[in-house]
Computed example of a mutant assay.
Amino acid sequence: MRTNATAQNGFSLVELMVSVVIGLLAVMFATRLMVGGEQSKAASVGGSDAMQNGMLALFSINTDASQAGWGLNDDLVNGCNTRMTDAEGFALATAARDGAAITPLAPAVIADGGTGSDTLTLYSGTGMAGAGSTSVWQNYIGGTSIGVASVSPFGFNQGDVIVVAPEPAGGDCTVAQLSAAPAASVLQIASGTAWRYNTGNLGVLYNGGQARVFNLGPANKLSFHTWSVSNGVLQLRATDLAGTAARPQAVVGNVVALKAQYGFDTRAGSAFNPKAGMRVGRWSTAMVDADGDGSTGAPGDWQRIAALRIAVIARGAMPERPAAGQTTCTATTAPMTVFGTAAPAGVSASPVQVALGVPNDAVSWTCYRYRVFETIVPIRNAGWRP
């Protein structure tokens, strides 16, 4: 008797191999899709982070710069080499005058960082009069009192910060603080823990009738600010922010550089009329002989600062990875250039190339995406002169 073999149903080996290949292709395409999506997400998120950080940083600095020079716009004060002692540690920014180091009071002082980040110091008083002053009436030969012609019309109060300036200009100015309410035309500058800017002596002699005292307002509102970038963080040292006079406070992260330039009004002779408005004729990170008197960094040059050009470079928070098969990132391939456009019209640009590396960063700067934020801030107090 003969029996027939029962038919077997199922996949053949060839069909199984084809199915495996199709599955592997599907996984490969899905993986590429996911990787591409993550890369796009990282780029988008990085761009968004840089946008937020850069805008916040620039807004903070812009607010300071727009007020710079208030109370310092008198020709006797603006650009005067100034002595100041602060018990909490704030130090005036150093600049150069014909190669010699000085510490000028001015709306802004820029420390050039080359291809790295600059340091920008902005000075502003808060006195209601803006440039309230009185004459030194008696010879000041040292000590804790200054004899003046009158104080009551100008609102001098206990705790106010003052600047004593020689008249005519030429000598050093000094910063001190009123330790008592003015009485009998005498300003007291006694030392003590409550008077952070006093040492009990100005350290400079002034002749009666040849000096003036300017009131910068209450000490707790004195706006002397220094902006800098360190290790990818925008930082601030300030006289009116507790604990930051000596040590900077972190303000915004993932900021790799701050750059700044002076905008000088270089008009000569009678064409320079600050009361009729200042006009930028030249941009420069370094101080120049803006008034053409043969001296670079003299008070007249600081009084020619009509505007500031400020740039902030921010980066995304998350670095990108190298492309498949590559060992280096290509998110950013070259340093960035700021201040490359001519503004205002007819004024030549002075472009600056900026390195993007952050010291001690374990990730290469080429793995990040960056954004540049620029603005021009008029020094509006420069034209409001007594």
Rank of each mutant, 00 (worst) to 15 (best):
R2L: 04
N4S: 03
N4K: 06
T6A: 03
Q8C: 03
G10Q: 14
F11E: 10
F11Q: 10
L13N: 02
L13K: 07
L13P: 06
M17A: 13
V18K: 10
V20F: 11
L25F: 13
M28K: 02
F29S: 09
A30S: 13
T31D: 04
T31W: 08
G36H: 05
G37F: 06
K41D: 08
A50L: 03
M51H: 03
G54W: 00
M55Q: 07
M55W: 00
A57R: 07
S60G: 01
I61N: 03
N62K: 05
A68K: 00
A68I: 00
G69D: 01
G69P: 02
L76E: 06
V77I: 11
E88I: 02
F90K: 02
T94G: 11
R97N: 15
D98Y: 12
D98N: 15
A100E: 12
A100I: 09
I102G: 13
P104L: 12
L105G: 14
P107D: 05
P107Y: 04
D118L: 11
L120W: 06
T126Q: 15
A129D: 15
A131C: 10
T134D: 02
W137Y: 13
W137Q: 15
Q138F: 05
Y140L: 12
G142W: 10
G147V: 10
F156R: 08
P168S: 08
A169V: 07
A169T: 09
A176T: 14
A181W: 09
A181F: 14
V186F: 07
S191L: 07
G192N: 09
T193L: 12
A194Q: 13
A194P: 05
W195Y: 14
G200Q: 13
G203P: 03
G209W: 13
A211L: 13
N215D: 14
L222A: 11
S223Q: 14
H225W: 01
T226K: 11
T226W: 01
W227V: 01
V233C: 03
Q235L: 03
A238D: 03
G243V: 00
T244A: 03
V251D: 05
V252W: 04
V252T: 09
V252M: 04
N254C: 01
A260L: 01
A260Q: 01
T266I: 13
A268C: 05
G269R: 07
G269V: 06
F272G: 05
A276Q: 08
M278T: 09
M278C: 02
V280M: 07
V280P: 09
R282V: 15
R282I: 13
W283R: 06
S284T: 12
A286R: 15
V288C: 00
D291H: 09
G292P: 04
G294I: 04
G294A: 04
A298T: 08
A298I: 05
P299K: 12
W302C: 10
Q303N: 14
R304G: 07
A306N: 05
L308W: 08
L308M: 13
I310M: 06
I310C: 05
A311L: 07
I313A: 04
A317F: 11
M318K: 12
M318D: 10
E320W: 08
A324R: 09
Q326G: 00
Q326M: 10
T332I: 06
T333F: 01
P335F: 06
M336A: 15
F339S: 05
G340V: 02
V352W: 02
V354A: 11
G357I: 12
V358Q: 08
P359Q: 11
C367A: 09
C367Y: 07
Y368A: 02
F373W: 11
F373Y: 15
N381A: 12
G383A: 11
